[in-house]
Design a protein around this nucleic acid. Structure first.
Lengths: 251, 251
DNA sequence: TCAATAGTGTCTGTAAGACATTATAGC
DNA sequence: GCTATAATGTCTTACAGACACTATTGA
C-alpha cells in the first residue's frame, strides 16, 4: 500500500474564506482582486496555502487576520471577534488550471466593520453584496454590463456558504455573530431580514427571541441609535442551539 | 506568490468513509481491520488515497464500492444504492504519524445488507454498533475489557458523522436511505428510533409522515413481514426537505 | 381465543402568525 | 403636535404529544 512519500500524487492544499457581514440592507461577502493569472483582475475569495505544520482551522484564522485584520472569536470571549467554521472541501481536478489544488473552505460571520485593509492594499479588497456576486455566476448567457463572476469555483463556494448561513441562523444563535457585542432586538431582526431577504413582524420577532431561553441576555443599557423609543441592549447568551428554532418563512 | 510546484509543502489527500446502517436495534458503522502499522490490528474507517485525476466524491464512491460492493445512488434511480455526501475535512498536522495527510470524510447511509466482503477478505471488515465504537473513544481511563478505540482520529470522524445523520433526518427525507426500496411506516419509524435512540409514538408518527407532502408514496402493495396486520408499502417520494420537519424529542 | 402490528380519531397545550395598543424618544 | 421605533397584549389557527379505539393478520 502506498505510504512511500513518492508513491502518491502531489496535492496542494489551500483554505478559502467566505466572509459574510450585514451592511446596510445587503448581505455582503469579502472579495479580493487577483493580481496574477489565472483570472487576473477578477475578484476571488480570500485564501491561501496551508503551511506544513499548520492545522486547517489555524490556516483559515491566519488568512483572515492577514487579509482583513479580523480576529477569530476565542473560546474565552464570545463577544468579540468573528465566528469561524469549516464549510466544505472542493477538489475537482480541473478547478485550478495550473495543478491539483484541494481547497478547504471556511465560513466566517462578522459584524459590520470599517472597510478592510488587505495588508495595506485598499484597492484590492472590498465588501460586495452576495446577490451581485451570485447573479454573475448564475445568470446564464452573459447579460450586458453584468458583473464578472468570481474566479475559479468561488461562485459555488460562496453560494454554499450563503446557504449555510441562511439555514444555520434558523436553529442556532449564530445571527448574533453579525451584530456588535451589544445590540437591540431591532438590530438582530434586521440581520434576519437581510440574510433571509424577507420582512419579519417586529412584534412576533420580539416575543420569539426574548422568549427563547439563553438566546439574549439584557445588559441593562438602552440606546436610541436607531431613533424612536430607546431600545434595550442585549448581548448573546450562552445558548448555541435554539429551541424552539427561528423558522424561515417559506417563499 | 508560491505557485511553483516545488514551493509548497507536499500533502497526501485521502477520503475516509463513515458508512452507517440500521441493523436490528443498533445503528452500525462499517469498520475495517488495519493490516499494517501504525495502529496495526486496530479497527479503522474504510478509505484510501485520492487519485491524481479523480474528483473527491468519485474517490469516495470508488472506495465504497471496492470495500463493500455498495453502489452509490445515481440521480436517475433514487430507490437503489446508498446516499453519499461530504461530511468534513480533517487536517491536523499530527493526525497521521508518518506524514501530513488531509482526509476528506464522506458520510454514507445504506440499507441493511448482508455482511460486506472487503475484496474477499471477510475477517477484516464488519458492522459494529456505533455506541460500542464511540464508547471506546469517549470512555476516559481505559475500562477493563473495553473495545479498542478506532485508529487515527477516526473516532471523532465517526462521531461527527453520526451527529450529522441524527440531525439531518430531522429536516430531510434521508431516513429513507436506511430502508429498502419498499418499506412500511413501521420500518421507517424503527429507523428513527434506532438512529435517535428514542421511542416514538406509532400513531403520531404515522399521522406525521403520511401527512408530509412528498415524503412517502404508496406503492399499493402490502406486507406482513413484521407480523400483525398487513402494512402498506411505500417508497421514498421526491421531497428532500421535510416541511414541517420531524422533531427529535429532547433528552 | 390471544398477541402482534396497522391505521384512525380525539383532546389538549404550545406556539406561530395577524393585528391593536401603548410607551418613549427626536423633531 | 407628528413620526419614528420599542414593547406588550389578544385572537385564531396549526400542530405536536398524549391516549382510546378499531382492523387484520398469525399462532
Amino acid at each position: 500500500m502506498p505510504y512511500d512519500p513518492s508513491a502518491f500524487p502531489p496535492f496542494a492544499v489551500t483554505v478559502d474564506l467566505v466572509v459574510l457581514t450585514v451592511r446596510g440592507h445587503a448581505l455582503c461577502a469579502l472579495v479580493v482582486r487577483r493580481g496574477e493569472p489565472p483570472y487576473q483582475g477578477q475578484w476571488a475569495l480570500p485564501g491561501g496555502f496551508v503551511r506544513v505544520d499548520e492545522d486547517l482551522e489555524a490556516a483559515a484564522a491566519r488568512e483572515l487576520t492577514e487579509e482583513t485584520g479580523l480576529q477569530v472569536q476565542g473560546p474565552d470571549d464570545p463577544c468579540a471577534g468573528a465566528h469561524l467554521e469549516q464549510l466544505a472541501t472542493y477538489g475537482d481536478p480541473r478547478r485550478d488550471p495550473r495543478m491539483r489544488v484541494v481547497s478547504v473552505a471556511y465560513l466566517v460571520l462578522a459584524p459590520d466593520l470599517p472597510t478592510p485593509t488587505a495588508g495595506g492594499d485598499a484597492d484590492s479588497v472590498r465588501w460586495a453584496p452576495v446577490d451581485d456576486l451570485l447573479a454573475a455566476d448564475g445568470g446564464s448567457g452573459r447579460e450586458e454590463e453584468g458583473p464578472a463572476p468570481l474566479a475559479f469555483d468561488h461562485g459555488r463556494i460562496l453560494a454554499d456558504g450563503v446557504e449555510r448561513a441562511r439555514s444555520k441562523i434558523e436553529y442556532s444563535s449564530l445571527a448574533t455573530a453579525f451584530c456588535p457585542p451589544e445590540f437591540t432586538v431591532g438590530e438582530l431582526r434586521r440581520v434576519y431580514e437581510v440574510v433571509w431577504g424577507v420582512v419579519l413582524d417586529p412584534r412576533n420577532f420580539h416575543r420569539k427571541v426574548t422568549g427563547t431561553p439563553g438566546f439574549l441576555v439584557p445588559t441593562g443599557g438602552t440606546t436610541t441609535r436607531q431613533g424612536g423609543r430607546p431600545a434595550q441592549l442585549f448581548r448573546a447568551g450562552g445558548a448555541t442551539l435554539l429551541n424552539p428554532p427561528m423558522l424561515r418563512p417559506e417563499a
